[in-house]
Design a protein around this nucleic acid. Structure first.
Lengths: 343, 343
DNA sequence: CGGGGTTCTGTCACCGGTGTCAGGAACGGC
DNA sequence: GCCGTTCCTGACACCGGTGACAGAACCCCG
C-alpha cells in the first residue's frame, strides 16, 4: 500500500471496499464515517477520511437505494416541457427537490392519453418516493399498486378513479372574474374559444364563463362558444364568429395555447375592436400592442405547492390532509379588455 | 396456491420471486421470460406470463441497474428550465430518451458557477450512462473520474479543461449574418447589447458583430457596445445609447433574454425608428408589431443532436468522432430590421 | 448405440452498500 | 474485584435481480 497522496489524480470511481482496504478498516466502518455515525474513534475517522479523499470516493447511490428499496428521487410527468407553463412548474419542483437532496426524474407525456401509463410506469419501476403528474388520461387506476410505496400529487387536473392529492387552479373562478371584467366594461356579446373541451380544466373555465353571463342576465348563445381545431388554427373560428348576426365584441380565450395562436391572427385581421382576455399568461403578453389582459396562474407557486405536498406525504404517510389544494388565480388587467368601440 | 385470476386487484408491487412461486418455476426463468430469452418453452413462458399479469408484476429497475452497475438513465443539467430555450432542448432530449427506454434525470444549475459541481455530482453518483450539460462553470476537471463510466455532452458552451463532446451553435456566424443584414439595409451605426460577457457564447456573438462591421469598413465604436445590468434592466443602456453623438439606428441584441427585456422598453419609448435583430428567437416575436427579426437557434435540433451523440458514445465508447458539433443558425428576417428612417 | 450439439431449467454467486448482532475494550460505581 | 454500561469495530446476511455454469432431456448422425 503506497503512502497516501492527497493530490492523486483519479481516473476511475472507487468502491467502499477499496477505501476500507486503504484505510485498513472494514467496509462497515467506512459506511459509518460516511453517515456520521457517532461510534467511530477520531483516529479511525481521520484515517478513513484521508482514504476517501485519496481515492476521490463518492458513494454509489444505486446500491444505497437498492438496499433501502426506495429511491431518493421523485418523478415529474407533464405533457410538454417546452410549454413555458410546465417549464416553470418543473423548475420550481427541481428547486424544492434540490433543497432536500432529492433527485428529479422527468418525462414528458405528450398529448395522447394512452401514452400516460407506460411513461408513468417507466418512472415508477425505479421505485421513486413520489410522483407529480399533470395527467393526460382519464383513468388512473393503474397507479393503485404503487400507492403503498409512492406518493402521488396531481397537478393542473385531478385524478380519476383514484384517491390522491391534487393541486389545481381556480379555473371556474378565474374564468368568471375574466368575463365579469369584460361585462363591467360594457361587453355583452362575449365569445368563448378553447382548445380541447375534453380537459376538465377547460370545462371548468367554460362553466365559469357561462355562470358569469347568467349572473349578469346575458342570454347564452352556443354559437359564440368555439372549439379550436388544431389543424386549421383560429382563423376558421374567428371567421365563423364574425358571421354570427350580432357578432361578439370580446373573446374569452380559455388557455394560453389558444391565446398564442389567436393573437397573431387578431393582429393580421387588424383586430376590429375585438377585446380579449386570456386564461393563462404567456410570454410577451404585456409587450404586445394592445397588451393582453390575462388570468395569471403562477406556475411556480403551483410547482412549489405540489412539491411541498409531496414531501409532506413522503415524510408523514399517515397524516390526514385535505386532498385538493386550489391555487388562486389573479386577473391581470391590461389594454386588450377595454370597452367596446361605439359603432 | 389459488387459481390465477387475471382480474385480481393488486394493492402492492410484487417481486420476481413471488411470480416464480406462483408460476412454479425458478426466479431465473422469470428473468428469462422478462428479457425475451429464446430458451424458454412455450408452455412455461405462458405460465409465467399469466403469473406476471396476475400479480401485476413490474420489474424493479433499482436492482437491475445495481447488478449491471450502470443506470439506464441519462442526466440533463441546464441553468433554468423555465427558459423556453432550455425547455425545448430538454423536451427533445426526453423524446429521444423515451424511444430508447432510457430515463431522464434532470437538474437546474442556476446561474452561479459554484453550484454546478454539486448539482452535477448529485446526478453522477447515481452512475448514469451519460450527462448532457449546459455548463455555468469554467472548470470541468471534476468530471474526470467519471469519464470511464459516463459519457458527457456539453451543449451551448464547450467544456473547459476537459476533453468531451460539445454541441454548440454558430454564434459568430449567426451574429455576423444578423449585422450584415442590418448593414445591407443601410444601417451604419449598429449597437451591441448583451447580457453577460463572461459567457463564451456572448463573446463569440460579439466577435461576429465586430467582424461584420470590420468587413464593411464601418469604424468600431466601443460606446455602442453595452452590457445589460440585470438589476436596472435595459432602460439605462438605451438612455446611454441615445446620448451618444451620432446615435445608433439599429440594435443587435446578443441573446433572447436581453431581447425579451428590450422589446417592452422599446415599445414604451415608442421606438423612434430603432431597428432590432435578436440572437435567439423568443415567444411572440413574430406577433409583435413590428415583428422582431431573429437569429433562430432551433433548440429542439440542438437537443436531438446532443442526445444522438450521447447515445452514440454510450453504444460505441471507442469510436472516433469529431468532438465539436456546430449547429447552424438561421436569420429570420421580419419587420424590426427594416431600413433606417430618412431624417 | 455412442458422441456431439441444441434446448430448456435450476443453482449459486455477485453487484455495493447497510441493518443486525456479537464481542472486546474501557470506564464507572459499589 | 465484579457487574453494568457505553464505546468502538467487524462479521455476516440481505436487498432483487442477472451472469456464469451445470446438468438433464432430447435430437441427429454416423
Amino acid at each position: 500500500m503506497t503512502e497516501p497522496r492527497l493530490t492523486a489524480i483519479v481516473a476511475r470511481v472507487s468502491t467502499m471496499r477499496e477505501v476500507a482496504a486503504l484505510a485498513g478498516v472494514s467496509g462497515k466502518t467506512v459506511s459509518r464515517v460516511i453517515n456520521d455515525d457517532r461510534y467511530v474513534s477520531a483516529e479511525v475517522r481521520e484515517r478513513v477520511q484521508r482514504a476517501i479523499a485519496e481515492l476521490a470516493y463518492v458513494p454509489n447511490m444505486l446500491s444505497q437505494t437498492f438496499r433501502t428499496g426506495r429511491d431518493n428521487a421523485i418523478g415529474v410527468a407533464v405533457p410538454d416541457l417546452a410549454d413555458p407553463f410546465f417549464g416553470a412548474v418543473v423548475q420550481a419542483v427541481t428547486e424544492r427537490a434540490r433543497e432536500r437532496s432529492v433527485a428529479v426524474l422527468i418525462t414528458s407525456l405528450g398529448s395522447r392519453p394512452q401514452d400516460e401509463q407506460p411513461a408513468a410506469e417507466s418512472l415508477l419501476r425505479r421505485h421513486i418516493a413520489g410522483l407529480i403528474v399533470a395527467p393526460t388520461s382519464d383513468d388512473h387506476r393503474y397507479l393503485q399498486p404503487w400507492r403503498a410505496g409512492t406518493a402521488f400529487v396531481f397537478i393542473d387536473r385531478p385524478p380519476r378513479h383514484l384517491a390522491a392529492d391534487a393541486v389545481v387552479q381556480d379555473d371556474a373562478g378565474g374564468a368568471r372574474a375574466a368575463v365579469e371584467h369584460l361585462l363591467a366594461n360594457g361587453h355583452r356579446r362575449i365569445a368563448f374559444i378553447g382548445w380541447d373541451l375534453t380537459l376538465t380544466t377547460i370545462q371548468h373555465r367554460r362553466d365559469g364563463y357561462r355562470a358569469a353571463l347568467r349572473s349578469a342576465g346575458v342570454p347564452p348563445d352556443h354559437r359564440l362558444e368555439r372549439v379550436l381545431d388544431p389543424a386549421v388554427g383560429p382563423s376558421a373560428a374567428l371567421a365563423a364568429l364574425s358571421e354570427v348576426a350580432d357578432p361578439p365584441t370580446a373573446i374569452f380565450s380559455a388557455d394560453s395555447q389558444t391565446s398564442i395562436a389567436l393573437v397573431p391572427e387578431l393582429h393580421a385581421r387588424r383586430n376590429r375592436g375585438l377585446a380579449l382576455v386570456s386564461f393563462g399568461d404567456f410570454p410577451m403578453a404585456a409587450a404586445l400592442r394592445p397588451s393582453v389582459s390575462v388570468v395569471d396562474q403562477d406556475p411556480a407557486a403551483l410547482g412549489d405547492a405540489a412539491a411541498e405536498r409531496l414531501f409532506t406525504r413522503v415524510d408523514h404517510p399517515t397524516r390526514r390532509l385535505r386532498r385538493q389544494i386550489v391555487m388562486p388565480v389573479r386577473l391581470q388587467v391590461r389594454q386588450s379588455s377595454a370597452r367596446p368601440r361605439v359603432r
